[in-house]
Design a binder for these strands. Structure first.
Length: 127
DNA sequence: GTTCTGACA
DNA sequence: TGTCAGAA
């Protein structure tokens, strides 16, 4: 269970970007894509929580290492959030649906994973 | 000085 | 994604 503490506004975009390893511009793009919603001060300055930081690190990994675009990451994260709540029986069903959906992603929406389309030639030695 | 939004390459 | 403008 997540502590409400993890959701406390702690870092400005400058510090958050260093913790995640990207530029402030990238963090703003994550927000534009609807992947995260940092707290805001009265002056509109973004304040990120520990939870936001962890989530953005995952987003960064999926984006840079797996080459999944932000729209795809949004879908993936929404699927991964399923089955985290509800009663055992309900959660069991959600997990089942999640597994099936994840299996189908490659078949019905390969566009979310550019690298999976043209395996023909891309920068050699990418493995 | 820092962050924000919008915009362009 | 980097960078710049103009405002806060």
């Amino acid at each position: 269970m997540r502590e409400k503490r993890d959701n406390e506004p702690l870092y400005n975009i400058s510090i958050a970007s260093k913790l995640v390893g990207v530029s402030p511009r990238v963090l703003r793009s994550y927000e534009e894509a609807g992947l995260i919603k940092p707290h805001r001060t009265e002056g509109k300055t973004r304040l990120y929580s520990e939870r936001d930081i962890r989530k953005m690190i995952v987003i960064h990994y999926l984006h840079k290492e797996k080459e999944v675009n932000l729209a795809g990451i949004k879908i993936i994260l929404s699927l991964l959030s399923k089955g985290e709540s509800g009663k055992n029986e309900e959660r069991k069903q959600q997990v089942k649906v999640k597994r099936e959906l994840l299996e189908k992603i490659g078949g019905i929406a390969p566009e979310i994973i550019p690298a999976a389309r043209d395996t023909r030639e891309g920068p050699a030695g990418k493995e």
